[in-house]
């Protein structure tokens, strides 16, 4: 068994008094790709938000151990600096803030937290060039303001590019497939696959099976009404695609 990166134990969480996660348990080891699937309203995005530390969610029970210590006590930026990355379902536009500048600031925060020296502009551009090559992306996106005026596909690609630069230990991809046509889906998935190593892990959250044609998970979990009702290998995703969620709901 590989080294555990994330251990979620009986997690209960809600928003404005409404219980959404009702006891989620999940363990993710280094080198693994996990997919969490589920119907709308099952709590998928809440799970991503709670893990990233978004404001406005109440944790009412359970615990989350990341890298050997409690995650819930950390501010979102501290989680990020410890290598937790969330690829947003709806990446946010920040007008007037140059993408390169933004990403350099982010990378340097992470490096500082690791006790590494900050990169200057030239060193950073070298990192960028290397990753651009790896992901076969256009550098133009980086010359523009963060996500401003990007198409849906460009935004998702930019997220993956950020992920490539920041080299997270745990990447959570929240509905990264939503709003993508098939070509964009391929590009994004290939990027994610290239970024997979033996040391990191990926948690892919999705409604549809089609993303999992390109990002092949080691484990698939089905989240229904705030609980993981079934876990299995990648074949579970296909079964879900064929039979729909009703099958699971009935079985549960």
């Amino acid at each position: 068994m590989s080294k555990t990166i994330l251990e979620i134990k009986n997690l209960h969480a809600g928003v404005e008094g409404k219980q959404i996660l009702k006891g989620v348990s999940l363990s993710i080891g280094a080198g693994e790709v996990h997919a969490v699937m589920g119907p709308n309203g099952s709590g998928k995005s809440t799970l991503a938000a709670v893990l990233a530390g978004r404001d406005g969610y109440d944790i009412t029970g359970g615990e989350v151990i990341y890298n050997g210590h409690d995650l819930i006590d950390l501010d979102p930026e501290e989680r990020a600096r410890e290598g937790l990355f969330l690829a947003f379902q709806y990446p946010v536009e920040i007008p007037g803030v140059n993408s390169t500048y933004f990403l350099k600031a982010a990378l340097n925060e992470i490096r500082k937290a690791k006790g590494q020296p900050e990169l200057d502009a030239i060193e950073f551009l070298n990192v960028v060039k290397e990753k651009v090559k790896l992901l076969d992306l256009s550098e133009d996106l980086l010359k523009r303001s963060v996500n401003e005026g990007f198409s849906g596909g460009e935004k998702k690609r930019a997220e993956i590019f950020q992920m490539a630069i920041l080299e997270p230990k745990l990447a959570i991809l929240d509905e990264t497939d939503s709003g993508l046509d098939i070509d964009a889906l391929k590009v994004v998935s290939e990027g994610v696959n290239k970024l997979k190593t033996k040391e990191n892990a990926q948690l892919v959250i999705t409604h549809y099976q089609r993303l999992l044609n390109y990002i092949v998970p080691d484990f698939v979990h089905v989240l229904v009404d705030g609980r993981i009702v079934k876990s299995g290998g990648k074949e579970l995703a296909l079964e879900l695609e064929a039979k729909g969620y009703d099958w699971i709901l009935k079985a549960a």
């Binding site: 007037g96 933004f102 600031a105 982010a106």
Partner: peptide, 22 residues
């Protein structure tokens, strides 16, 4: 916007400065 910046490792104050300067 602030959460997005936080999630990339930037502290809230730095995020606000960056957003306002932009």
């Amino acid at each position: 916007q602030i959460f997005y910046c936080n999630q990339r490792g930037l502290a809230t104050q730095d995020a606000v400065n960056m957003i306002v300067n932009g």
